[in-house]
Simulated scan of single mutants.
Amino acid sequence: MAQIIKIQDCISRYEQDPYHYINQFIRLKKQRWQSIKEMAEKKKDSLHYDKEAADDETVGKRKKTFTLKRKKEASDINKGKEADEWFNGLDGETDESLIARIPAAREELVSFFKEYVYEFQLKWASSTISDISRLSREIKSDKILHILAQQLPDSYFIMYRPVLQVNQAAVELSVLILTPLEIYCISFLEGEKDSAFIGSKDRFWKEKTVRGRERSLLNPAVELLRTGTVLSGLLKGSGIELPVRKVVVSRTSYIDYPEPPYGIGICDKRHWKEWLEKQQKNFAPIKSQQLKTAKILLSHGVSDSMRRQEWLS
């Protein structure tokens, strides 16, 4: 799973200490995965045990024993101070309620774990110990962010339409994906299924649906070129030599643009899965230039947040 290090103008704990949190993510995720697997196995055994005890004369006593056992397992799931801070400190969910949600079936466990981590990633990218930002309903239900976070490798960093301070002005950029080998600036076009986006060098593009409807939208290349210019300015003189790829992407629609501007790539539904699979096969570890890039960009992040209630007293 990729690391979400910035969402729009939300405060992020990565902004405080990017090296620490980026380096801890993979290890803590592995640790939590192991703990949850153990809990799922114990829950499966306990359910089997409880079923066998249903007709037993001492069922009341055994249920009491099972309750005590679950309490012990609940304390075992949080192994280590860091795991407790990352996975429990922001949510308030009790260990027993978490165990109750864990599926006993192994085939359901991976999906559960990905959703579980994603929920916390949204919290990590919108809060710190003392401050919190409000995530919009659109972000909470955003399919693109969900797909990127769950399907890209751990070594990828996502800055989702980050708002950065540039020359005393706040500027919202396109989606940034910092990989170990390059930087992607992506403008996602979400249209009706199988519609066609007609590209041009004009200010507006058109989307034509299979039902014959048309709508206009801003030329996504403009946003990408602006994002590329901002990146170049912020990284100038840093010694970072990561290639910057600017791409217009549509997962479910076609893009008709035979001659896009120089430096702008096109990836529509005919190539989306291929692009995603290529990223998933990138086993390169986190690189120093990638970390340095993340630190520089996060240092310019704009954050709209409020003090947590417990910190106001």
Rank of each mutant, 00 (worst) to 15 (best):
Y19K: 07
M39G: 05
K30Q: 12
I36R: 02
I5R: 03
Q8E: 08
Q24M: 12
Y19G: 14
Y21L: 01
I4A: 00
K42M: 06
H20P: 04
M1V: 08
C10W: 00
R32Y: 11
M39C: 11
R13I: 06
E15R: 13
L28E: 09
Y21N: 05
Q3N: 10
I11D: 01
Q31W: 06
I36F: 03
Y21C: 03
K37V: 12
Q34L: 11
M1P: 14
I11M: 02
Q3Y: 04
C10Q: 00
Q8H: 07
K29C: 09
K43V: 08
Q3T: 09
R13G: 05
L28G: 07
Y19H: 09
S35A: 15
K44H: 13
M1H: 08
D17T: 09
M39S: 11
E15Y: 06
M39L: 09
A40F: 04
Y21M: 05
D17I: 09
N23G: 14
L28I: 06
K30A: 11
Q16E: 14
K44Q: 13
M39A: 14
Y21E: 06
L28N: 07
E41A: 14
E38T: 14
Y14A: 04
D9R: 02
D9S: 14
K6D: 00
D17R: 12
Q16V: 11
I4N: 00
L28H: 04
Q3M: 09
W33E: 14
Y14N: 03
M1G: 11
N23H: 08
Y14P: 01
Q34I: 11
Q16W: 08
I26P: 02
Q34M: 10
L28S: 07
K42W: 07
H20A: 11
H20W: 09
Q16L: 08
Q31G: 10
E41S: 13
K29H: 13
K29F: 07
K37L: 09
E15F: 03
I11G: 02
N23T: 15
Y19D: 09
A2D: 03
S12G: 04
Y21I: 03
Y14K: 05
R27P: 03
I7A: 01
Y14H: 11
H20L: 14
I26F: 12
D9F: 01
K44E: 13
K43T: 11
A40Y: 05
K43R: 12
I5V: 13
M39H: 08
Q16G: 05
D17S: 15
W33P: 04
I7F: 01
I4S: 00
R32P: 06
I11P: 04
K6F: 00
K43C: 07
K29V: 11
K44V: 08
C10Y: 00
W33L: 05
K37Y: 09
Y19F: 15
L28Q: 11
M1W: 01
Q34A: 15
Q8L: 02
N23C: 15
H20S: 12
R27T: 15
R13P: 06
A2V: 05
I4C: 01
E41N: 11
I26D: 10
M39I: 13
E15H: 12
R13D: 10
I4K: 00
K29T: 15
K29S: 15
Q16F: 06
D17Y: 10
C10L: 00
P18F: 05
K43H: 08
R27F: 15
I7Q: 01
R32G: 03
I5G: 02
I26G: 06
L28M: 08
E41G: 12
I36A: 04
E15G: 13
I4Y: 01
I11S: 03
